[in-house]
Every structure is written in C-alpha cells, then in structure tokens.
Design a protein around this nucleic acid. Structure first.
Lengths: 265, 265
DNA sequence: GAACGGCGTTCAGATATGTGAACACTACGA
DNA sequence: TCGTAGTGTTCACATATCTGAACGCCGTTC
C-alpha cells in the first residue's frame, strides 16, 4: 500500500452496475491487487480468490498483462508481480501535466523564500494525492510524498479544496491524530472559517508536530489542485502563519497566471 | 512521455498473437495513450484513432475505466484524462518492494559517505528504470529520476546488469551523447572489461559532464537491480573512482545480506 | 508408494463483448 | 436560417471472452 493512512478509500472496481466491460474492470482490479503486494510475487489462485473470479479467467488476463509488460512472471511462469510499466505510466503524469509544470518553479521559489517544505496535491474523491514536493533542507528526514495520499479532511490542501468547492467528503472522516476533525459539523465549521480567512489551516490534524497552510488553485472548475506549506509547530507563530499564508496566496496568483487556460477538470 | 530519450522502447501492447484478451490489452493501451498526454484531456475519437479501434468499443472501455477511477472525465463526460489511480498503483511498488526497502537505508548511508548522488534501478527489457535516488546536496538542481528510464547500454547501472547476466540488448543501441557505445562489439568489449574490473563505468555516455560507477545486486536470478553513483567529471579522478567503486561494492554486500531471500525475478 | 489436495492449464459451450451503421446533437460557416 | 461535418451515443448481430469441469502435474501425508 502506498497509503500512510489506515483507511483504504479506493472504490471497488468491479461494482459498476450494468455497462461495464468485465475483462477491463478485472484487468484494473488485477493491477491494484498486484500493486498492493509490491514486489512480492502472487500465485494465480490467490489473485483469483481476491477478485472472486474463476482461475481460468484470471489466467487469460494475466497472460495478456504479462505479454504487454505490465506484469512480470518468474521463469517458470507461475508467479506474477507487477511490472514497471505501471510505474512509468503513473509517473508520466508528473512529467507531462501542464499545470504541474507551471507550478513547479513557483513552488521551488516559494520553498526558497519560506525555507519550509511545500506541496502540490490533487483531489481524488475524498483524498488528496501529492504530485510534487519541494523540500526545505531543514527536515530531519526526507519524506517524499509524491504518489502518496491523505484523506482530504485531514489536510490543509484538502480543506482548501473543499472550502472552494463547497462540498463535503462522502465517506466517514477517519481520525489520523487526536486533532483530526471527524464530524461533518466540525469540518463544515472549519470550512466556513477557511473561506473567511482565505486559506486553510491544518493544526496537527494528520501528522503530530506539523502545522500546514493551504490554498486552492483556481484554474480548474471545480478546483482540483492545491498548494500547501508544512511548518513544524515550534516554528509556527501567529506572525509566521500570516507570512506563510501571504506567500502562498502570492504563489497562487503567480501559478494561476502562468497556468494553461484550458484543461484539467 | 516520461522518457528522456528519443527512442521509445515500449512494445506494442496489442501485438500478442493468439491468446490475448482483447479488451484487457486495449485497456492497457488506453492507459498508456492517456498517460502520454499527461493532464491534457483527450476526446473519444482521438483515442479510438490512436488504438485503431472502433469508437463504440473505446467508448465502452472508457466508461469502465472512468467508473473505476482510473480515468477522469469532465463534467459533460466527453473529455477524458488519466486519473490518479495509476499514479497510486505505480508508486506503490516504491513503498512496498522488499528489496527497495532493504536497499534504501544503505543507499542513504552511501550517499552520506561519498557525498555524491546514488541510484537504484531495475532492468525492464532493454532499459533501466530508476526506483530510488539519494541526492547529494551538491547538485545545482535536483533531478528526481524515480520512474524515469534510460537505455541500459548507456548507463553504468545497465552495463553492470548486462555484464552479470551475460546478454546484450535486443534492440538498436541509441546514441544519447557522442560517447555512447552504439555497436554490439563496443558494448560487448566494455562488458568484458566490466567483469574484469568488478564494476561498470559510464563515462558521459548518457549525460555530458557525468561519470557513473555501477554494480549489480545479485539477490535475484537473473540479476535485475543495480546501484550506481554519479559524479561530475571534474570531481572524478582515478583515485576517486577506486574509492567510489569500493564503497559501492561494500554497499552491494550490505544490501545482499539484508535483502529478503525469496523473491524478485 | 499410493492416495490426496492444491495448483496451473486446457477445452467446448454459455455468455458477454466488439462491431459498424444509424441516430442525435453541437458548432461552425455559408 | 440552413446545411455540413464532426462528434458521442445507441443498437442488433457477429465474434470473442468467460465459465466450470476435466486433466496432468507436483509435493505431502498416511
């Protein structure tokens, strides 16, 4: 699992009612099942059980996936592991997404200006997925968050997006720390304050010791992306919060001005 | 494209002869086609043309992909873009692969010891895909290579692997710089020297100004993973080369000792 | 050492998908 | 205003996949 959180928000792939192409849905389920195992090989029977599909069906699919390079097999052909194609396809977004490309230099400058780690994340259902991180050199250890996700309601990024969009997560609000907002009422109230303030605040709601400020990027309608800055609690005074927030808002404007016009949704 | 090279080594997904599940193969082609466009939305007709499949077939597939979260659609449902699920699935390898997990701390220590950037990459056909990079703070700009790839024959990583495996790339040997080895004879001779030396050397063969040393990790049979250290040419003296190589060989032993026994293939 | 259980693989029929043409809709230009 | 060209969508039939059972294989157990 790439997820640092206990709750897996991924929907069932196969539960689409009527007009779903069965083998396509199963192909994706297979990739997800293999991904969760990492490099650990899987046997046909395990995967068939996991998908709830006959062995023979899964067998044909796995041969197809293997032939296309998305799945690797051992020399005997009875063990399967996810191939590198999925990594290449997955990370290709990071190289080619035009918004990300526009945002990256601005984020680097922002990191240098504030001396703190900054992120850009995109909403995916009830969670935010980190697309790029510019780290300050000051952190004790490097936490590369690209490709990871957190529940939207527990992050400044997610709350900035929810405030701008005006909706609430559909699922339950998992508690990652004692300070996570776990009721719709508390979250809604926080979103009101967020709109008033003009930026979102996460006060150790997903990671103890870390306070974050986030703002949404408004080039998409409804908004999808947001940027944030994480600051250790002992460096985050009220004056510092204002300083960070105004730097983020300036960066927001800069990104929105340089971002492509058409596009993301 | 995530690729920094001119030659696309990816095989055709759909070309499997007989026992391929057509809709599964097309699903993967669709993901690859969407990935190449990054966040830029695609229309149904474009994708159908690209796959060489009827619009109606692609339509059904896209609805399935969209229902499962692998593909996003705009509010009207006529524009498609790759979703974040592929990023999550792709990067999950980076978190859960047991070999990578074993190697990472060793690589971090190696980076600290040498003060230079070190990589771990895995062979995928004729190319090497970077799985992790530990950067020295000395580089002018951060080049996050995770998920990118280079032709095996142009890197110390790839040459270390080829030397250990005893095979040559099947495709043509693309020239990335004037120093890239582009004939099978030159490459084979280099691999002989590599075996004698005990480590592989890349002398500005993929990136001008960069000299790299690589060694293969022998926990898999045949070998799949390798580690390397990149050093700017002006810091790379003969003594330094010996120093870097012996540090890499020590790290190799350390990783091989801590790596899981069963596994990757 | 023989029976057992589990596994991967294969096959022919049942079932779901792929196909191409037809339809409805939009945007654009005449 | 109308026609045109392009698009996304739907439908019924031809085609391909899915299924469950059967087979052969291996390692284990009794």
């Amino acid at each position: 699992m790439a997820a640092p959180t206990p709750h897996d928000a991924s929907a069932e792939v196969g539960d689409a009612r009527s007009s779903a192409v069965k083998s396509a849905a199963r192909t994706l389920q297979l990739l997800e099942a293999l991904a969760e195992r990492g490099g650990v090989p899987a046997r046909l029977a395990e995967l068939a059980d996991e998908l709830g599909a006959p062995r023979s069906s899964v067998h044909a699919l796995l041969r197809t996936l293997a032939a296309s390079g998305w799945v690797r097999t051992d020399p005997t052909g009875t063990l399967y592991a996810i191939g590198l194609r999925s990594l290449l396809v997955g990370t290709s977004i990071l190289d080619s997404d035009p918004y990300l490309r526009a945002a990256r230099p601005v984020l680097a400058a922002l990191r240098d200006r504030l001396g703190e780690t900054v992120h850009l994340a995109r909403l995916d259902g009830d969670r935010v997925v980190y697309l790029t991180t510019q780290e300050s050199g000051r952190e004790p250890r490097r936490i590369a968050r690209v490709g990871r996700w957190l529940p939207a309601h527990s992050t400044s990024l997610g709350k900035a997006l929810l405030a701008e969009r005006g909706d609430l997560p559909t699922g339950p609000l998992a508690a990652l720390t004692p300070r996570t907002l776990t009721t719709p009422e508390a979250l809604a109230a926080d979103l009101v304050r967020t709109r008033e303030r003009g930026y979102a605040v996460d006060d150790e709601e997903n990671t103890p010791g870390l306070r974050c400020i986030g703002v949404a990027l408004r080039y998409a309608h409804p908004v999808l992306d947001a940027i944030s800055c994480s600051v250790p609690v002992d460096r985050m005074t009220p004056e510092r919060e204002t300083e960070v927030a105004s730097a983020l808002l300036a960066a927001r404007t800069q990104i929105e001005d340089t971002a492509p016009v058409q596009g993301v949704f």
